[in-house]
Write a protein that binds this DNA or RNA. Structure first.
Lengths: 329, 329
DNA sequence: AAATTATATGAAACCGATTACACATCATAA
DNA sequence: TTATGATGTGTAATCGGTTTCATATAATTT
């Protein structure tokens, strides 16, 4: 593997000149530039990024921590972040944390040691004390789905509560008169907010009662069993709002298996907007702008890394109703 | 950020001794070790991986190139690889190539510059000439779903043809008497093999005719339209084998929309074994051992990196029938 | 008692880049 | 004509580690 020294020798200039040529800073004469270019071509020289990072303190690498890439929400997020990172010339390190504090802490340590330029964390379980290490090393962080105020940390969230309200509103508009809710883990802020939205929208209706809320865990299977339980309690329900799409898919399955027609008998709406196009009927959902979230996260991170003065502040993204067959007849 | 020099100074020993202590090689007296440990604790010192990599030529990082993490097959693969990598103390860089040669080439260059210790490539489009750069830098490669013989490259594949046969066989056993096939991109070797398996299994039956094969593209939508076309041509078909699960899901949807009962009227089977548990009925499939594939890929890569003498050779993994509701009544 | 061998340590080279600084040349302004 | 600034280049320090080699002492062998 050719090094900058090899290039400098063969080109008859100093390594400094080659470096200047490579980074396009400082003066380099036209002749020198041409010779260097030729030699680089000839040797098929590629700068060693590791050495570059050591000298320049930048790795052009970011860490992306997600709970579990198997959850279909996260590939979409990862993809949008990776695309954006790629445009900025950055590479992404993928870390699955399983919402496990120990794993999170370990990955944060690893990423610090690998000198990543920044980290995007999508985690329900991250705690302030985990981030202090990053703050100490002044490694920029963008936090998704979680708020934690600090000047080297930007938080991006969506309007979860409004989304919950929107879902109920839509179901009501479609003629539902008894709406159940499958809520996600109470440990997750955004999950609680979605449920809060549901409750607020139900407040004052004459049909609402607490037993219309089923407690689940954001999984298909969880949504399925929660729906079964709800049906046992309320055979006459005619609408369901699940706090994420996976649970909604599970609910849909439970309804179909118990011979409820969707959307004729019962209407179903989820939350997140992941593309579950294989479902029949297709699922209505309160969609997060996932790609925009990823892109914005990367933009914000770059801003923090470059210490631009117009650093992005915390943002709350709107959600939108995406009505499909599961609520329309 | 504390450096090894800070530690050595405060501990009253040389950096060499600290380095020996850190890497547990060479001699370090008990007293020295204790003092160093204390100082490290006190300074909260963490070795800088970049410097380590530069000196030691190892980055403890691997690259993972996949076509698109949005395709549900790849999160499973990525997850299993990441888990295995993590156990070995390695970190994973995620690269989406979109089966685009230019992107692949660019990522390979980037990964070389970042000095990854090895690369796992899952790509339909990779060509030998793309790998020569890696060979030149003697960067180990594990290739999935693609065979390319070389001593620094290990290929892992599955028994695609046998899987295709297995699918047909299963449908026949379940009583099907006219089986259609939705095949994937012909540019993909494993896709062609699955179709070859289908054809071989159909050979000699009295009902088979070429128009029972629909050509598609491995997507849900593609499977949907292919199924619609097949139904128009052969309203009497009673079984479908799709070359991957996404197309099978699309086919399922098309069948349901056209009021065909699955599995009573038509039985459907896919290929891959991705967990599409939200489908109703659940999809039978020819399952690849995805997690085992990922784990093995990582094991093989580590073997190549460490230059172990019992380097793993190319492997072909068996596939298994996973019968679910879509073929059982 | 002398010769080995095992244990322990530090100085300095090295990994492959960036960059501050010194110095030289040439063109332009005063 | 001289001062000044722009242009161009090389030397050497630096980033934060690892590793070779020389050296010294303690523990075993013979």
């Amino acid at each position: 593997m050719a090094t900058i020294k090899d290039v400098s020798k063969l080109a008859g200039v100093s390594v400094a000149t080659v470096s200047r040529y490579l980074n396009k800073n400082g003066y380099v004469s036209k002749e020198a530039a041409e010779t260097i270019a030729e030699v680089i071509e000839k040797l098929n020289y590629r700068p060693n990024n590791i050495a570059r990072s050591l000298a320049g303190m930048k790795t052009a690498t970011i860490g992306l921590m997600v709970p579990d890439i198997l959850n279909p929400f996260f590939p979409e997020l990862a993809r949008s972040i990776e695309d954006a990172a790629n445009e900025y010339g950055y590479t992404v390190m993928l870390c699955n944390t399983d919402n496990d504090s120990a794993k999170e802490q370990k990955y944060i340590d690893t990423l610090i040691q690998k000198q990543v330029d920044g980290i995007i964390i999508s985690s329900y379980t991250i705690k302030p004390e985990h981030l202090t290490g990053l703050q100490k090393q002044s490694i920029p962080v963008v936090l998704m789905d979680n708020v934690f105020s600090s000047d080297s940390i930007v938080s991006l969230t969506v309007e979860n509560r409004q989304g919950g309200e929107l879902a109920v509103q839509h179901l009501l508009e479609q003629g539902c008169s008894k709406i159940a809710h499958i809520c996600g883990p109470l440990s997750i802020t955004s999950s609680r907010d979605r449920t809060a939205g549901f409750e607020r929208a139900c407040r004052g209706t004459n049909w609402f009662m607490p037993s219309l809320i089923g407690y689940s865990d954001f999984t298909v299977k969880g949504g399925y069993t929660a729906m079964m339980d709800l049906l046992a309690l309320h055979p006459d329900l005619d609408g369901v709002f699940a706090s994420n799409d996976l649970m909604a898919a599970g609910a849909l399955k439970a309804l179909q298996e118990t011979n409820h027609k969707v959307p004729q008998d019962v209407k179903v709406i989820g939350f997140d907007g992941i593309g579950l196009e294989m479902l029949n009927p297709e699922l209505s959902t309160i969609a997060q702008p996932i790609f925009e979230l990823g892109k914005t996260a990367m933009d914000a991170l770059i801003g923090l890394i470059r210490k631009e003065n117009d650093i992005m502040t915390d943002q709350v993204f709107p959600v939108t109703l995406r009505a499909k067959q599961s609520t329309m007849n």
